[in-house]
């Protein structure tokens, strides 16, 4: 397999997008068009083909088995196999934070994390922060402080903010700014995001 753009073929990520699109089409049409999905969630017992891996993990509290390509990032598997498009495809170099998810409770940029490293792990996306439909304290604070504008980065910001509340940061403004390093908001809502974190932290004392 090659990823070099000058080869004029689909890059692997383009292929995954094509796969996801074709998987979506397959839901509406009876025939499976084109390329097979490189990773598929099966309700029964998924069987990995040669070169694929079977992952046993928990996503937002649900134990699952999923077959993955060992080259797939966690972001790709969550978006394209599990439909969790709250996990954004942003900078893809770990600096923007729009794909931040929790792995065993710790925030990690899912665009750079090989899904294969998540064997046996508990993955939490923004959907997992309000499993019963009740907003978590940080989600409510984001709304109260108008910490979201266009919304693209918001799921990653909320997940990161949730994690920051359990990390050993100081409560001063400078510490909150440092904790948000790697979480960019192109709409400029960083002050409101920091205020939402500070508000939840002070509620908790």
């Amino acid at each position: 397999m090659t990823d070099r753009p000058e080869d004029g073929e689909l890059s692997r990520r383009q292929f995954l997008v094509a796969s996801a699109v074709s998987a979506a089409l397959a839901k509406t049409a009876s025939a499976q068009p084109g390329l097979p999905p490189s990773a598929a969630l099966s309700p029964a017992r998924p069987i990995p083909r040669e070169g694929e891996l079977l992952l046993h993990w928990t996503v937002n509290g649900q134990p699952q088995q999923v077959v993955i390509d060992p080259q797939a990032s966690l972001m790709e598997v969550l978006r394209e196999s599990l439909g969790l498009t709250s996990v954004r495809r942003g900078c893809e170099d770990g600096s923007c934070g729009s794909c931040t998810v929790l792995v065993d409770g710790k925030r990690i940029p899912s665009c750079l994390l090989w899904a294969a490293l998540c064997q046996g792990k508990a993955i939490t996306t923004v959907e997992g922060l309000s499993p019963d439909g009740e907003l978590s304290p940080i989600q409510a604070a984001f709304i109260r402080h108008k910490a979201s504008d266009c919304g693209f980065c918001t799921p990653g910001q909320v997940v990161a903010a949730h994690a920051i509340l359990s990390e050993p940061w100081g409560s001063d403004e400078d510490s909150i700014q440092q904790s948000l390093c790697g979480q960019q908001c192109a709409c400029g809502r960083r002050p409101q995001i920091a205020a939402a974190i500070a508000a939840v932290r002070s509620q908790r004392g």
Binding site: D3, G94, L117
Partner: peptide, 25 residues
Amino acid sequence: VGGGLSLSLLSERGVERPQRLIDLS
């Protein structure tokens, strides 16, 4: 593979082309 973050980035870009990844986790 330690954390794998950098290697996944370089592999995705075609800068590194590993055929076998040895996960040390």
